Amino acid sequence: SEIVVAMYDFQATEAHDLRLERGQEYIILEKNDLHWWRARDKYGSEGYIPSNYVTGKK
């Protein structure tokens, strides 16, 4: 599975969105859409994140 790191904070506005915290790692579950990826955080929460807010883990 692909691990990404959040470059920016993202506040979830929709129920299906996942909040991003800058510097935290997330697991990508689905990339069915170019701009919104389904991800899981370290607490096990899942939701959609803006793909341009994250970068591949170095």
Rank of each mutant, 00 (worst) to 15 (best):
S1H: 14
E2W: 14
E14S: 14
N32F: 11
G47D: 01
A6Y: 04
D41Y: 03
D17T: 15
K57S: 10
D17P: 08
R38S: 03
Q11E: 14
T55S: 11
A6Q: 02
W36P: 01
Y8V: 07
K58P: 14
I49D: 02
I49L: 05
E25D: 08
Q11K: 11
N32K: 12
R19V: 10
Y43C: 09
G23T: 04
R19C: 14
Y48T: 07
S45V: 13
A39R: 00
I28C: 04
N32T: 14
H16S: 13
D33V: 04
N32G: 11
D33A: 07
N52A: 14
A39C: 03
E14T: 14
D17S: 14
R19N: 15
K42F: 06
W37A: 01
K42E: 07
W36L: 07
A6C: 06
G23M: 04
Y53P: 01
I27L: 13
E14D: 13
E46A: 03
S45E: 13
F10A: 02
I28M: 01
S51I: 06
F10W: 15
Y8F: 11
A15D: 12
E25G: 04
Y43A: 08
Q11L: 12
S51V: 10
E46L: 03
L18W: 03
R40W: 04
Y53W: 06
K42H: 06
G56W: 14
D9Q: 04
E21C: 10
Y8K: 11
K58D: 15
G44T: 02
Y43R: 07
W37F: 05
A39P: 00
K57T: 11
Y26H: 00
R40Q: 09
R19Y: 08
D33T: 11
N52E: 13
R19T: 15
T13R: 13
Q24D: 08
A6V: 03
A12C: 10
D9F: 05
Y26A: 00
Q24R: 05
Q11V: 14
A15I: 12
G56M: 12
W36G: 06
R38Q: 05
E30F: 07
S51D: 02
Q11F: 14
D9C: 07
R19H: 11
G44Y: 03
E14Q: 12
R19L: 07
D33I: 05
R38M: 11
D17K: 15
R40P: 01
L29W: 03
A39D: 03
E2R: 09
R22S: 10
E2F: 13
D41K: 02
H16T: 14
V5T: 08
N32V: 12
Y48R: 13
R22E: 09
E46F: 04
K57H: 10
A39G: 05
H16V: 08
K57Q: 10
